[in-house]
Design a protein around this nucleic acid. Structure first.
Lengths: 343, 343
DNA sequence: CTGAAAGCGCTTACAG
DNA sequence: CTGAAAGCGCTTACAG
């Protein structure tokens, strides 16, 4: 209420504009604009006068106006399924580390693993006219694909490789991850093998890891003796609760593939607390290779997706523009089985 | 090069504007604007025609133009020391959860724990004219304070309580956290007490936890028998390496305060791997109560800062506008000692 | 309920 | 090296 009569719509008080700086410095607004954006194109004397005026007034250029006039937003959007998972924040962090030095601002949005939310989020962020989009995975609503295509900006689908990328695609085969996990457990002589997942219905990459896992088990004449999509969100506690329930069941089990490391770390804790030896009684393997996974005791065998590299490459692809260089449109960053103490 | 002669500056091809939609629908641009922003103010028939045109053309309103014209950005900036730490991403996530439903977009920036980077980041993000800023901690360069003050928007300093907040302040006393940790170890009968930190020089909150810790030890006639600011970034592996080094030293130690849970979890792993009993030989206490901390074995005693509540309250404070209600300008969310197996 | 005018704060050309 | 004009794509406020 304090600004009720400050003029039409209480015109952003305090908001210093180019015109104010120009008046203060006694020059035209173009000189101010130049002094700020290409200092070399302005005489030393004027540049100094402008700088003083900018400082005196506390001028901060308005990016909306700048973007609108120049058709350049210097914005890159990163769309991830979850903001709180360490996995995705590392990708954002890696992308940010390459984009920020180039003057770009990263804008993060999350989809909560829902394709419909993804579509809504996508529509919303395109309104900010980003110069590139990094989006998780290859599964999208048709409308989402269409929007992204129409935007005519570099679009990177990250984390998983698909057959029909929108533009650029950087990731790995999650089916192969599952296969690799299964091979490892089978080679270790495990036969009574379980699977622990959570939020499986929404996580297509997790579904494919599970599918690859079962495929290889089947080749060895095995099937999952225990297979659970535990209620609750992916996280350490869900992994622990799932393991507790599994231990309480009558089923004999000698190995578990947890669909990611968060579940696996929780499962290891619960197994130990339940008096089981890991890997003696129970081998446990995860996916992601969180920083943590090497440091718990016993340390966790897992499969490492080079997350930071994905973030970095995705950002570089955005900087490079559309994936016109066809060789770079699809990058398999590969994954690595990291054998540690838990198997 | 493909768009070299598409007109002046290859005028964003593909970019559909309000005018295009208006032409398609056979109405004025104001009707389109209204049909989109306040559908109730437009006749059913026209609204339908506009909707059809929007869909047909794949129109996405340009937020730069909208923000510029309306002086509303619907943007809230969150400035954190690190993007990859789970602690900060949880705060961002909690803030996002309350802001998104209100039509706001959260923009995250990180300072790498540097006050100078913070100042630069601040200057940069204010150019996007956010309607609110949530910033970590109470330690800022004078220029940063000045900028934030001038912006005349709600500013929330989060995570720690200070004497002279810029605007709104939501957090806890980190000195008290340190005191609480010390009291707990002393009450448990520990006497040969160590401290493990990392990146201490840049982390003022961590410094104050350490100060409070030492203060209470001194009251019991004790001092740290081992005190390390381990090289490397805060993280699980740094905690593990610090513990390994400590175990290799000649000093007798029966308890450790790790300045945060990431270090503490790594330290627990390394202690176990080094053949120590936790808490038998060594009690370990951390700070933060990561989701993980309750699930490792032995589970970690720690001090819980209600991070999600901080994020939520900060976002709500931004929505409520300036902290004019003085009772709400300073919120002590409190912390809680969570005693578990590691002590 | 609908629309033509003016303007948000910049940058892009274009003149000097 | 410097500046006045035009315009980016919207919304506000004012008429009908």
């Amino acid at each position: 209420m304090t600004d009720a009569k400050d003029g039409p719509r209480a015109r952003k008080r305090g908001s210093v504009t180019l015109k104010d700086v120009a008046r203060e410095a006694g020059v035209g607004i173009m000189t101010v604009s130049r002094a700020i954006n290409s200092p070399d194109a302005v005489s030393e004397r004027l540049r100094q006068r402008v700088d003083d005026a900018v400082t005196a007034l506390g001028y901060v250029p308005n990016r909306w106006a700048g973007s609108l006039a120049s058709s350049r937003s210097r914005l890159v959007t990163v769309i991830v399924p979850s903001l709180s998972s360490g996995v995705f924040s590392e990708i954002v962090s890696a992308a940010d580390a390459v984009l920020t030095p180039h003057g770009y601002q990263v804008m993060v949005s999350n989809t909560s693993f829902s394709l419909d939310d993804e579509e809504a989020v996508c529509r919303k962020v395109l309104g900010w006219r980003p110069e590139g989009v990094i989006i998780s995975g290859i599964d999208h609503n048709p409308a989402t694909r269409e929007m992204l295509l129409q935007a005519e900006i570099p679009v990177v689908e990250a984390l998983e490789l698909g057959d029909d990328p929108i533009d650029i695609n950087i990731g790995i085969s999650h089916i192969d991850v599952g296969r690799t996990a299964a091979r490892h457990l089978v080679e270790r002589g495990r036969r009574r093998i379980a699977f622990i997942g959570a939020e499986m219905a929404l996580d297509f990459r997790a579904q494919r890891r599970r599918a690859g896992f079962r495929e290889v088990l089947a080749q060895s004449g095995l099937d999952l003796v225990y297979d659970v999509d535990h209620p609750g969100r992916v996280g350490y506690s869900t992994g622990a609760r799932a393991m507790e329930r599994m231990l309480a069941s009558a089923v004999q089990i000698d190995a578990v593939f947890c669909v990611n490391d968060e579940l696996a770390v929780g499962a290891v804790g619960a197994a130990l607390r339940g008096g089981r030896q890991v890997p003696g009684d129970l081998a446990i393997i995860g996916f992601n290779d969180l920083d943590l996974s090497a440091e718990i005791f016993p340390s966790l065998t897992t499969i490492r997706l080079p997350r930071k590299e994905v973030g970095r490459l995705a950002a570089e692809a955005v900087l490079a523009g559309h994936g016109s260089d066809s060789a770079r449109k699809r990058v398999d960053v590969g994954f690595e089985l990291v054998v540690r103490e838990s198997t």
